[in-house]
Write a protein that binds this DNA or RNA. Structure first.
Lengths: 107, 107
DNA sequence: TTCCATACCTAGCAACGCTAGGTATCCAGA
DNA sequence: TCTGGATACCTAGCGTTGCTAGGTATGGAA
C-alpha cells in the first residue's frame, strides 16, 4: 500500500529525466531500498492517470530491434504537482509523527 | 486521507489512557496540530474495527445526567499492534523520503 | 527451443476513508 | 421558552486507490 503518495513518487522518479514504465518501476524499487517493489498493475494505470491529468507526456519509442517503449516525461505542471506532492507529504508526515508520539522520527 | 495509518493514530491516542470516541477525535486533532480533523464517519467505524480485531475493549459509561458514552481502552494486543504500527510507519516514511528525494525530511 | 527478463496493457476486486444522513442529550442565550 | 450549538453516538453507501490476475509480445541466453 502506497497510501496515496504514489503519484508524487512516480513524478519524482521522472525528475532526473524521461523514462519508460518498466524503468520507472526499477527506479522506484532502487530508490526506496526495495521497499516499494510495485506491481505493473499499480504503475501503468498510474502513468495513464498522470498523463490524463497533464502531469506527464508520453512518446512511443521504437528500438533498433523493433521493440516499442513508451517514454514518459514530466510536464511543467507535473513539476509543479511534484512540488505540491512533496509539501503535502511533509505536512502529512509531520502530523503523523506528532500523532504517533514517541521517537518515530529518525535522528 | 489518512493513507492507511489511521489505526495506529487511533491506538496512539489511547496510549495515555481510556477515552470515548468524541474525545479521541479531539485528541487526534490536537496532537496533529489540527491537520487531522477527522469526521466521525471515519473514527467510529475505525473504533469498531479495532475492537473487532481485539486491539480495543469498550465499556458503556452512564453520566450522572443519563448521557451515555462508550469508553475505549487499549488491550495488550492493541499495545503490541501500536508498536508494530509505529515500526511500519517509520519504514514507510523512510522509503517515501528516499523515493521523493530532496530535502523532504525536516532538520 | 525453451525460458526468463523485458515491456506493455486492462478488467475487476477489496480496502479505506469520507459524505450524508440519522438519533439523542445538555446547556447557553435570546 | 425554545432554539441553536456542542456533545455523543451510529451506519449505508460511495469514490478513490492500489492490487490481483490475467493477457500479449520481443530479445537474449542456456
Amino acid at each position: 500500500m502506497l497510501k496515496g503518495h504514489l503519484d508524487a513518487i512516480v513524478l519524482a522518479a521522472l525528475e532526473t529525466g524521461p523514462a519508460h514504465g518498466y524503468a520507472i518501476i526499477e527506479a522506484i524499487k532502487s530508490r526506496s531500498g526495495t521497499t516499494f517493489d510495485l506491481p505493473e498493475g499499480t504503475v501503468y494505470p498510474a502513468l495513464h492517470r498522470l498523463e490524463q491529468a497533464g502531469w506527464l507526456a508520453s512518446n512511443w519509442m521504437t528500438q533498433s530491434g523493433g521493440r516499442r517503449r513508451r517514454v514518459y516525461a514530466l510536464t511543467k505542471s507535473g513539476t509543479a504537482a511534484l512540488a505540491d506532492g512533496r509539501k503535502a507529504w511533509r505536512r502529512f508526515a509531520e502530523a503523523v509523527n506528532a500523532s504517533l508520539g514517541g521517537r518515530t522520527w529518525p535522528a
